[in-house]
Nucleic acid binder design. Structure first.
Length: 170
DNA sequence: CCCTGATTCGC
DNA sequence: GCGAATCAGG
């Protein structure tokens, strides 16, 4: 695939919408997230408004010394003195927990295209193009684009409520 | 381990 | 210009 005008346009759009590179890559198809990121940079679109969060990495030449896998195991001395106490307590206020019981998934996450990866349920909800259109977004099964619930819906019955009832009754 | 973007550089 | 490999971080 090449960067046609249309694809670049879509790339820009999705990037501006805040989608991740991998998501955009998936949306475009035929490209990897690296390709997307590379293009983003070439277009000078990096940054995306996001403040300096993960920048500041130290660049180091890797051409001279390929060092494929820096597995040199540099055993320095006095490792015991490296008491790097990094206790970070994070009190989870627990805002809106969703139990998500097995097979019971009436409420979908409000995922548009964000966070949709190969491991998130891509069950479409609503009409495409509609403002309410989104995806389930729950954890998908292995080798399946859908979560447990929607996988069942997709491959068996056409009425989700039957399965829900079934699950509820045992 | 999952993911994110950033950078380098051979092609 | 392109993007895989790599890097740095959450």
């Amino acid at each position: 695939m090449s960067w046609t005008d249309e694809r670049v346009d879509l790339l820009k759009k999705l990037w501006q919408e805040g989608l991740s590179a991998s998501q955009i890559a998936g949306e475009l198809g035929g490209v990897t997230r690296n390709a997307v990121i590379g293009k983003i940079h070439r277009l000078g679109l990096s940054g995306r408004g996001q403040p300096t969060s993960t920048i500041k990495r130290a660049r180091r030449p890797r051409n001279s010394a390929p060092v494929r896998q820096q597995r040199q195991t540099v055993t320095v001395g006095a490792t015991a003195l490296q008491a790097e106490v990094e206790v970070e307590m994070e009190v989870e206020q627990e805002t809106e927990l969703q139990p998500v019981h097995a097979l019971v998934m009436p409420i979908s996450r409000r995922l548009t295209i964000e966070k949709l990866t190969e491991r998130t349920c891509k069950w479409p909800i609503g009409d495409p193009g509609d403002e309410d259109f989104h995806f389930c977004g729950c954890d998908s099964l292995e080798s399946s684009p859908y979560c447990e619930y929607h996988a069942g819906v997709a491959y068996q019955t056409s009425d989700p409520r039957r399965r829900m009832k079934r699950a509820a009754n045992g």
